[in-house]
Nucleic acid binder design. Structure first.
Lengths: 223, 223
DNA sequence: TGGGATTGGATTGTATACAATCATACAATT
DNA sequence: AATTGTATGATTGTATACAATCCAATCCCA
């Protein structure tokens, strides 16, 4: 919580770093649901002024992780497992579109990049490196969004990704999900490269459905 | 552009009002795509300090209407008609889910509220009041999102709504869209109240598809 | 003439000071 | 005793001052 200087987010601004710290701490449960985040406390804990803290809180509100009410401040809005279930269902609908559009609109360079990511992904999955597998899973999906050529779709799905980040972490190590996931990615990419939008969409829906079931299984294992 | 004091957004904070002014001006084309929004100019134009302007710009970035790069500032990212087309397609996918979930999870109070909104909507549509019809169209959809009981879904669809706001305005007056739209709403709500998720979803997809075609027709009429 | 440093103005990033608002406790009144 | 009013401390909202950065024009020197 106090390793503020280790976090070097995106553009290097204090706002981004404060944002990254708060996002991580909220998703990690350091600040449970309902916790009120007072600006002065955070700013003194992180040794920055209130200004970047305020701006970070604004971004967190847009992300949906806190809710801010005028003259009252920010309170944490935890990520419920119902939310996560809903997001997986939403992703089933629109991530299929991403694959379809990638098949229809993706440039050769974009598809090539996905192929390279996928090769790395398989390498780490077979090596059993869960951490790297999970990272590359995210990278692959991000590349897919990019290849869809639709900024509204990219924005929506990217927002979901960070929102359900911790849930993905927990469920990704469950069973042999990394290897299965890579295989599914390969079939999706093959369909995309063959410009078969229907197949790509169907495979992707199946992929997300499997990820959801993996998540539910991981939840089950905890309780 | 200078009627700042007339705009009274949500919570009455300066940040909200600046946000509302800038959003309106961007969507109205006062600031075309690529315009760089300098904080000091806006703050002096609106007679506020840079602080609320900065915060408003942050919100606009999350909304997707501007993009901010570190140490360089904010530039307008216009809403292309490709973006709008994509959003309608996305809505076809997930707004159907909203109806399905409303049918499955909606409380009697929520459905009752939708019914009341719809009666008003029909009243104004038959009266030929396009302005009010369009407002109530928004209100109806917002009530639908609420009844879905899913905050991720509500957040996503609400964001789309403001993003394509101007496009909806332009296309809503096209032909007899208000009356047709009310009829479609009525059939959707009937299905929701009958807890027929499948039908509600199908009707909603059709409804969005028709709205998209109305938009495309309106675009055609302009060019 | 061309290319690379430099310097000045403009703009953003951060800190801090001040004003407005809210929440709590306590006192006064009925 | 309940309620209303009021004072006080804490917290947020806004303004402003200062630091860091960027950009473009200029200058210098080969």
């Amino acid at each position: 919580m106090l390793d503020f200087n280790e976090i070097k987010a995106g553009d290097g601004s204090l706002t981004s770093r404060v944002y990254a710290v708060l996002e991580r701490d909220i998703l990690d449960g350091v600040y449970p649901d309902g916790t009120s985040l007072t600006e002065s406390r955070i700013s003194s804990e992180l040794n920055v002024s209130r200004t970047p803290v305020r701006e970070a809180l604004f971004r967190l509100e847009q992300e949906g992780l806190v809710s801010i009410v005028h003259n009252k401040g920010a309170v944490v809005r935890g990520v419920s497992s119902d939310d996560i279930r809903d997001i997986y269902t939403l992703r089933m609908q629109i991530e299929g579109l991403a694959s379809r559009w990638a098949a229809e609109r993706g440039t050769p360079e974009q598809l090539q990049k996905m192929r390279e990511i996928l090769e790395l992904e398989r390498f780490y999955a077979q090596k059993g490196d869960v951490q790297q597998s999970r990272n590359l899973d995210s990278v692959f999906h991000a590349a897919l969004y990019e290849a869809s050529g639709s900024s509204p779709l990219r924005r929506t799905l990217s927002a979901y990704h960070s929102y359900i980040g911790r849930a993905r972490e927990r469920s990704f190590g469950h069973g042999d999900r990394p290897l299965v996931s890579v295989s599914e990615h390969e079939r999706i990419l093959d369909a995309v490269c063959a410009h078969d939008g229907d197949l790509a969409e169907a495979l992707t829906r199946e992929h997300i459905k499997n990820a959801l079931e993996s998540f539910l299984a991981a939840m089950e294992a905890i309780s």
